[in-house]
Design a protein around this nucleic acid. Structure first.
Lengths: 236, 236
DNA sequence: GTCACGATGAAAAACAGGTGAAATCGCCTG
DNA sequence: CAGGCGATTTCACCTGTTTTTCATCGTGAC
């Protein structure tokens, strides 16, 4: 449910408010005040953004222009344009440029959230309600991870970040996932580069499973990353 | 009895008056001055609106067009169109578009209220007179919550918001309800995002039950929301 | 053996939600 | 129209949980 969001908006105050509100919803938000910079972030695929919220008027590169570039490059993510009320007449241009929705300023934060949810739902890639790999089953609705063991079904409630992490693993099982990739996708940039958030969070997840008598399905591949393997209890 | 209402009207003055009058009746009203935005709000399902009052002539998207979209999307809620006297001739178009009723401006507020009441009554989803889950029984008519305990029947009068809250819980028992959802459904947008109205109101409800010697059926699921469970007095 | 990277446990920080008191609101009455 | 009253919201503070940081340790590669 939480999204990886890019916010391109040059009004500091508004941007801060928006970022805060979105983060409070559990989303991971990067903010940048410049159109060109925003475009760089989007196209670099440093993180796989799932939504971009872009102001109409921006230094560097205008919002509609940013949309157009995204579309011609084949980037497939919902785009939400922010326009000042006065620019309402131009909205057609924005939609032409490839925006999926627009919102005219000023707006109530709740309204922004409503749009975000609507776009999220509208996308064809609307996320499957339940993720399952081997004996592991995570239901984002209840936040419960269910593991079927020899002894029966164990249900473990996961906290926010634990859920995001587990979701990522379940979506990419077997594959070796570099720690840096986890950090880019699950945390915002502006991270202290020497932070070991990822390791710490992985540990919390492992420990929580262990506390329920389960072996860890997450293995560390030294210097390459992590790997999720649905191991049965009692294997090497 | 109170409704969740969306008002789409671009004349500031009229909109304000209507909003005030409706709120005075206990309804929860969101206002938005633009047709397209109104449509977004409706379709985003931020809140489950139970009535939309829509002006005929609007920037962004006309009233009838908004109705048509609502109908083709399968949204099932009463729609009340406001038309200037001159447009009266077109009323057929409005009804064709799926409006349930229309009202020509200028109108007396009393008349608006009458229409609202009428639409409310006419809807097939006209609310059940009594809500009951387990030992809890709420009668919206009298505003009394009746709880059957070992010691007999306890009747507790609930205040306005308490009633709405209890109704929502009784309509959605067991399920985990995010606090944000309660706020969107029971309060209007334009809320201070950091307000803790919901927590406060939940507390009042819990406390009122406690004052009558009842255990709280409302449990908090940390960081996910609230859950109504019809627990019997004397359980974990 | 040394280096780099990740693991680890404890502590700190950030955060969500609970709480009582006080302020505010809307309505009713005198 | 003032005062009172109950309902509702706000405020400041408190609590328990989640997340991050910090310092340190272990391990494999070279």
């Amino acid at each position: 449910m939480p999204l990886r969001i890019l916010l391109v908006e040059d009004e500091q105050e508004l941007a801060g408010a928006v970022q805060t509100v979105l983060q409070r919803q559990g989303h991971v938000v990067d903010h940048c005040p410049d159109g060109l910079e925003g475009w760089m972030l989007l196209s670099s695929e440093l993180a796989r953004y799932e939504l971009a919220i872009v102001d109409w008027m921006l230094p560097g590169l205008s919002g509609p222009e940013l949309c157009r570039r995204a579309r011609t490059t084949g980037l497939d993510l919902p785009l939400l344009l922010l326009t000042a009320r006065a620019e309402t007449a131009d909205r057609v241009e924005g939609l032409d440029a490839g925006a999926d929705d627009y919102l005219s300023k000023p707006f109530a934060m709740e309204e922004l959230l409503a749009r975000v949810r609507a776009l999220q739902r509208r996308q064809p890639s609307y996320r499957e309600p339940v993720l399952a790999v081997g004996p592991y089953r995570f239901d984002p609705q209840s936040g419960l991870l269910e593991v079927s063991t020899a002894g029966g079904l164990v249900a473990i409630p996961l906290a926010g970040k634990e859920q995001q992490l587990m979701t990522y693993f379940l979506e990419n099982p077997v594959r070796i996932i570099p720690g840096s990739q986890l950090r880019n996708q699950l945390w915002d940039l502006h991270q202290d580069p020497v932070s070991n958030v990822v390791a710490a969070q992985v540990r919390l997840l492992r420990r929580k499973l262990a506390a329920h008598g389960l072996p860890s399905p997450i293995e560390t591949v030294p210097s390459r990353g992590y790997r999720f393997l649905a191991r049965l209890p009692g294997e090497p």
